[in-house]
């Protein structure tokens, strides 16, 4: 038992790292839900494609034998294309898979099915163009194994710290954007009362597009980070990660940005503890058990508002 207890801090660190990834992904679900009241089930695939974009850039750097690979410049070089590509992809998904449906006054079910379709389409597109075999991130070339710190018996790799820092910067950036800028106010206005936002002169379609761009760009970041962390990526990785992040978003209170971050962290830590202290095979059972408990006892999520107060669309 004391053996297990001594693993607690270490597992906590792993949990936080995993949690920041879930949090980054959950932000995409929660933002899209905030403005459109729909779940973008293709979000996991955007994350997966972000991992592929980062991998492709990394592989290109290695192919061209670019020397002096240091995370200080390589990381932005991996992240930026992934963010832009995923952001654009997210906007394209909204434009072609969802907007034609809700413009014609479809119920919420239509876009949901379309989302599943888009998700299958993207998975297969990646499988056909990139092959079904997994791709490998040469993380060791960027973050050598000996780059790790020990404190209080916890071993923390440099990569892990970088992941947490990058995710924290992204979340801070998004939160600042949403709280302090003109675009952010427009997003909140559309989320709260779409018709009144339009009466203020907000172009609702542009705001929805911007929301998809932001959420998807963060999914791109999460994809690159998870690629570096797990070193192996494949075309189905978005499915379970997407479901977990969706769970995190619901756990924190869907539609709530801080809730998504919190939900991600909690889910990451719980999952990490479950692997160590219970049984790795029960990891998903516990994650989704947490979702079910949330839905039963606090359906609005930890930071969500009581459902009764929500406006209908």
């Amino acid at each position: 038992m004391s053996d297990l207890l001594s693993m607690l801090p270490q597992q906590l660190v792993f949990g936080i790292a995993l949690g920041t990834i879930y949090g980054l992904l959950a932000l995409g679900y929660t933002m899209v839900y905030g403005v459109l009241f729909m779940i973008n089930f293709a979000h996991g695939e955007v994350f997966m494609i972000g991992a592929y974009v980062g991998w492709a850039v990394f592989a290109a750097l290695l192919d061209h034998q670019v020397g002096g690979l240091h995370p200080i410049w390589v990381l932005p070089v991996l992240l930026l294309p992934a963010m832009l590509f995923c952001g654009g992809l997210g906007m394209a998904i909204e434009r072609f898979a969802y907007r034609p449906l809700y413009r014609r006054g479809a119920t919420r079910l239509g876009p949901l099915i379309s989302a599943v379709g888009a998700s299958i389409f993207l998975q297969n597109a990646v499988m056909l163009t990139q092959g079904a075999r997994m791709k490998v991130y040469m993380t060791n070339l960027l973050f050598p194994r000996e780059w790790r710190f020990n404190f209080l018996g916890v071993s923390v790799s440099a990569l892990l710290i970088v992941m947490v820092v990058v995710a924290a910067i992204m979340m801070w950036g998004l939160n600042t954007l949403v709280q302090k800028t003109r675009l952010g106010r427009a997003i909140r206005a559309v989320a709260e009362d779409r018709e009144m936002a339009a009466v203020m002169g907000v172009s609702v379609n542009n705001v929805i597009g911007a929301t998809f761009f932001l959420g998807s760009a963060l999914a791109g970041v999460a994809g690159v980070l998870i690629g570096l962390y797990y070193t192996q990526i494949d075309f189905v990785m978005g499915y379970s990660a997407g479901l977990k992040a969706f769970t995190a978003a619901v756990l924190g209170g869907i539609g709530n940005i801080k809730g998504a971050m919190l939900g991600g962290l909690i889910l990451g830590i719980v999952e990490s503890f479950a692997v160590t202290f219970i049984n790795p095979a029960f990891k998903d059972v516990i994650a989704f058990g947490l979702l079910i408990l949330t839905l039963i006892f606090r359906p609005e999520g930890i930071l969500g508002e009581p459902l009764a107060d929500w406006k209908k669309v």
Binding site: R182, R185, A186, R188, A189, E192, D193, M196, A197, V199, M200, G201, V202
Partner: peptide, 21 residues
């Protein structure tokens, strides 16, 4: 608008700024 429909989750200042959007 009818029933006011101010943005309840924004501050008074933010509502006014939205008015000038």
């Amino acid at each position: 608008p009818e029933a006011r429909r101010i943005f309840g989750r924004m501050t008074v200042w933010e509502n006014l700024i939205m008015g000038a959007y």
